[in-house]
Amino acid sequence: MLRDLTLEVSGLVVLTGANGTGKSTLLKIAAGVLKPSTGRVVRPASVGYVPERFPSDVKMSASSYLAHMGRVRGAAANDVLERLGFVGSLTAPMSELSKGNAQKVALAQAFLAADVLVLDEPWTGLDPAAATELVSLLEDRTALVSDHEGHLASATRVDLAGGHVTIELSRVVGLDALEALEGVRSVLSRGSSARVVVAPDRSDQVLAEALRLGCSVRSVR
């Protein structure tokens, strides 16, 4: 859960934050994969999206996949694959490609978009030369990117967690009540456990409320 977030993407915007702070979820909402539970997203017509992990078992060839994606978008082919140094067969099933080359195909389809790019850890699996080339490809583009490794030093940075306290809970009850508390930035629940990211100045109140509700606190850091 992300709350009270207003984000206007102009030029390059980099999302940072610890694991579980909602970067991938926010990117999916921005791209149009997920709907926000409240609030609204205004996005241009042509959005390119690269997920965190491109699937490795695709039977279609890279050339066929990119041709189809180009037709779906009504976009002309680009030279992104060449610029990123794709090596391998364009006509073999993508399941036979290395992780890095599959990522280059994922990036090439995203760059077919004319308006905005939404990229989740796009450097995953890329060799250093391709990583550098991706930085130059992103110059002058409008893009929302999650970036753990600091490739885009000059971009506007948005830290989803900021200074934060992470509370790990088990035997969670009253999750809705916790989510509604002031200062709660994200809640990631898994079965009866949950990770709650809280603003530092509100952590005591959230902790007290969790204990009052009957949750067990595993860790606070």
Partner: peptide, 15 residues
Amino acid sequence: EDVVRREITVVSAGG
């Protein structure tokens, strides 16, 4: 399509 590739298709197709 697996879940992830379907997400890409949804974004490419516009919804």
